[in-house]
Amino acid sequence: MSSRDHILSRIKAHKPEFIEEPVITLELFMDWKHVKTEFTMKVEIAGGQVFEATSNQNVTEQVSAMFPESKVNFSTLKGTDGFNTINLDAINKPHDLEDLDILILESGLGVAENGAVWIKDSQLPMRVLPFITKHLVVVLRKDAIVTFMHQAYRKLSCDQTDFGVFISGPSKTADIEQSLVIGAHGALSMSVFLV
């Protein structure tokens, strides 16, 4: 018998009698907090920052002002080609992105309860981008923020994403004596622009 069949047959023999799948009742969780305020607070708790912007152009202007020293920039926003200092098509392997200073991405989904934004393959020219960049900037429409993860997954249920990630704040660690240090292996900072 293959290991697969061995394991499956043992489970079949040992599992308990069938137990029904519980029903998730969203009403139990409704706390009527203000979605945008809550989202902003949670991004800040996660070590990120939230700004408002009027247009894509306005985002890149604010970002350039925030990081005047940055050399290597890339944005996926429409009409912001002037901001980009690199051409992704010319990059042979993702490893060459090591020097990326600023990455600007779009997200179509934010979650108020934890300040997370959803980034998926189709918004991401290379999967490693949001992790390898020094500073991560995400542009999110205010009306794309949902209250809880439950609603977020309802929105994602018909989505055929090959890879996607919820990101909440910059990378961090507290592995040395529980002291929080922002900037572990991923981005050193994260800014969300609400439009």
Binding site: K42, I45, A46, V111, E113, N114, G115, A116, R127, F131, M149, T161, D162, F163, G164, V165, F166, I167, S168, G169, P170, S171, K172, G186
Partner: peptide
């Protein structure tokens, strides 16, 4: 934390 910084959903290989 209210969620980990990264919750990565891997479905298809690159």
């Amino acid at each position: 934390q209210h969620i980990t910084t990264y919750s990565s959903h891997f479905k298809k290989p690159l």
